[in-house]
Write a protein that binds this DNA or RNA. Sequence first.
DNA 1: CGGGGGCTTGAGGCCACTCAACGATAGTGG
DNA 2: CCACTATCGTTGAGTGGCCTCAAGCCCCCG
Lengths: 227, 227
Amino acid sequence: MYIRNAADASPRLNSLREFGMTSDLNPIISLNEFTYRRRTEIYGEKEPADYVYQVKLGAVRSYKLLPDGRRQIGAFHLMGDIFGLENGSEHRFTAEAIVDTTVRLVRRQSLELVAEGDAMVARNLLTMTNSNLQHAEDHMLLLGRKTSLERVAAFLLEMDKRLTAAGIMALPMSRRDIADYLGLTLETVSRVLSRLHELGVLSFIGNNQRQIVLLDKQQLTSLDLQN
Amino acid sequence: MYIRNAADASPRLNSLREFGMTSDLNPIISLNEFTYRRRTEIYGEKEPADYVYQVKLGAVRSYKLLPDGRRQIGAFHLMGDIFGLENGSEHRFTAEAIVDTTVRLVRRQSLELVAEGDAMVARNLLTMTNSNLQHAEDHMLLLGRKTSLERVAAFLLEMDKRLTAAGIMALPMSRRDIADYLGLTLETVSRVLSRLHELGVLSFIGNNQRQIVLLDKQQLTSLDLQN
DNA sequence: CGGGGGCTTGAGGCCACTCAACGATAGTGG
DNA sequence: CCACTATCGTTGAGTGGCCTCAAGCCCCCG
């Protein structure tokens, strides 16, 4: 997918700061916003990585596909997360909006140009790449060696840290998304969640199966078998 | 593990170059060699990351352990590979010599100091971290979604690129290592290799089950279901 | 109100795991 | 040099955890 209408205009230094990609002496970089409707592609695997994105509102999934349709989601990007940052010139994942999502975007080239002259920015790039790496490393352990129960527990704890407000965790993603993130099937995810419900570890709000309250995080933690 | 006797001496600019971590104007960094016997730990998970390593001779496995002993190997480091490069101050894997292994090592601090002043070196650090990230991303797909046959095929092709000489691939690692890398059991790995042997895709040299000739890489590739 | 997507639950199956036996090899010590 | 032992690899039999297939419900949305 190519950016259709990034011809918005006025670059804002404020936003760049939020991007974590600026220090005081930088030239101004063009920075735009764009909104994607739910279930639309932001970029595809192997497309040129011309832009770097930050989620302003919404949620994004990054995944790889096998020829026969099997899907592995490598990460969910939530409010504030930066994604699409590749070193090579091509994206290594497909990125899709899970719900209607507004992103800020910067040309990769501008970013590189700034990084060239500003050690602080360059350092931020490295730090970000490194935290992506750490996440992937932890996820390899989960995918290679954990049971379905441990995977779901780890998922709930991860999401809890990232999107719980007022004790309620509002998941933007479907059971299938969770399954493809955890290397399971959607039925298995559903069964495990039911089991955790029966165990009194969590409970659902109203009839919405995506709004969850974690009643016993300690038990969840003990189920996960952390690192 | 801490470096016991890195009191060798003369820093060599040559080696630093090989390390890919120098350009012409750098100060000289102390660079030492050290040899680890097979099955000894080079560093442990959560130990301070004081050194960065390069395999001069031998092979290394990097892994995470769960409390009950389940192991996930994140990467094998072969001749020329650099490992132990973390952004944070702690190692995120345990690294062990698979066979007797000689490494070059640099203090992380020196490296950072040089990177500070030399954009070229800083760039190399980012590139290296990024290729580690790419490997981890591909491995997540393998661990989350591929069958045992596809995993072993992918493994063989990966190793073939890295350590085949004169048509013969001499694996330094055991079946258990391979299994823990691929998220399988050693028995499954052994069975799949036997099957590939029967299919005429590969053959073993002599009585050594670790020396393999790939007879039909094309078929292997089609078994892998690449990315 | 009709249709489709999302979630749950049940029944049955299969792929990889577990447990076990055995042979071969390499490393160790007398 | 040889016996001893641990490690490594293969193979078979049986099990089980997760997958597949299927049905049914609910909710949202057009």
